[in-house]
Computed example of a mutant assay.
Amino acid sequence: MPASADPHLAQLDTDERWRALTTLPAKLSLYRDEVSFRESWRIAQEVLGTQVLTVLQQTTLLTLRPEAILARKADDCLEFLRRHDFAAIHAERLRYDRNSIRDLWRYQWNVAQLDSIEVSDLVHYRAPALMLVLRDLHPAPGTPASLRLTAVKGTSDPTGRTPRHLRSVLGAPNRVLVVIHAPDEPLDVVRELGVLFDRAALRRVYATMCQEGADTTPRSEIDDLYRSTERYSLRVDKAIDALRRELRVRASIADPGRLALLGRVDDRLSEAEHGGHLDWRGWVEDLDNCGLAYDSWPSTVVASHHVEHTLPGVRPLIPETGRRGWLAGDGLLLPRQVIR
């Protein structure tokens, strides 16, 4: 791997210190040219000093996404984290925008269908999110905190989870409404913070990683988010029922021309329920012709479940979490230390 011209990144090349952050050199090659990653790494070094690698291995992030706030999943999530020995030491409220969404998942969304991305945007824009800084109180042999959390979190695809995974516990129904997000490796922690926060916020968040103290439930932040947002269900069957109720109400007063349009929407719902994919652009047009909002919560939930999610035969630009490399001893796992 060529040495970086950035002196802060060049320090990672000394004695392959980068192996404390990732077991995937190709991932580092992609990240090291990103301004957001470089800024975040420099500030991490400035704030955390000689303990920077240790701190990044012993702490991680988990974001309660907008749908987690809307569905009131925060307390169930925190209880799961406590049972798995992750202590929440800080909470940071954030709003996703178009650029941060695309930057954050740049190396995974190359496989995503554009319909799925458009529906994801509706979810991300609908409410604020809450990022938790977590300390790992019971590290697993051979892996940093971020990898242990990834293992218990579960995949975005429900078919790849068990009922014990966090996403299953929280009722995440599909690959759009995944409820939570967490970075895979310490390197991803650095990059994610750089994508989401400005320099002042980066200093604040990194400073919390070295503070002492027990698990702190971010009660005031959660209550404030709940007060400022409506409550919605993530259940797809409830969303379909809500749409059908609306269709029946409108059909009862519709003229023959509008009645045919309403029937077309109902037909699309039936096709999706029986295994067909929902054509997003056609769905939006049909709802608009009926005077229904395509971005209503029931419509968004139905579309999140029934649009095509991935392009066939395409692999993510970063296809691995790094877990296999850590378990094989490719990572540089540092001795556990008291963080000060």
Rank of each mutant, 00 (worst) to 15 (best):
A182M: 04
L234E: 07
L234R: 09
R244Y: 10
R231V: 12
V249L: 11
S220D: 07
A239M: 09
D184A: 13
D266F: 03
E230D: 08
Q211R: 14
A200Y: 01
R250I: 08
P218D: 13
D237A: 15
T216Y: 06
L166V: 12
Y206E: 03
D266L: 05
D241H: 09
Q211C: 13
Y206D: 01
A201T: 03
V179N: 08
N174W: 09
D237H: 14
A200V: 04
Q211K: 07
D223N: 07
A182Q: 07
S228C: 02
A207G: 09
L193T: 11
A239W: 07
D255G: 12
S233K: 05
P256W: 11
L193I: 13
P256H: 09
T216D: 08
V236Q: 08
A172F: 03
F197M: 00
V265W: 08
R191D: 13
G171Q: 05
R244I: 12
R264C: 03
L166W: 11
L225C: 09
A172V: 02
L187K: 05
A214P: 05
T208D: 15
R235E: 15
D255P: 03
L187R: 05
I180R: 03
R258L: 13
R258T: 11
T217Y: 15
A207P: 01
A254C: 08
V265Y: 09
V195D: 10
S168D: 15
L193N: 01
V265H: 04
L177T: 11
N174S: 10
I180C: 12
D198F: 03
N174E: 11
L202I: 07
A201Y: 00
A201I: 00
H181Q: 14
E192C: 11
G263R: 13
A242P: 02
D184C: 02
D223F: 04
R235M: 04
V265N: 02
E185Q: 15
T216N: 09
R203Y: 05
R264F: 03
L243V: 14
D241W: 04
R219A: 13
R227Y: 12
L202A: 02
R248F: 07
G263S: 10
I180M: 07
R248Q: 14
G213M: 06
P256I: 02
P256D: 12
A182V: 05
P186I: 11
I240A: 15
L187Y: 07
I253K: 10
D255I: 04
R219S: 08
D223P: 00
Y226Q: 02
D224W: 07
Q211I: 06
R248G: 02
L262T: 05
L247V: 11
P186D: 08
A214E: 13
R264D: 10
V176T: 15
P186N: 04
A260T: 03
R219P: 00
V169L: 03
L261W: 11
D255N: 12
P183I: 12
I240K: 10
S228E: 12
P173H: 07
R203N: 04
R167F: 15
L243Y: 06
A207C: 04
V176D: 06
V205T: 06
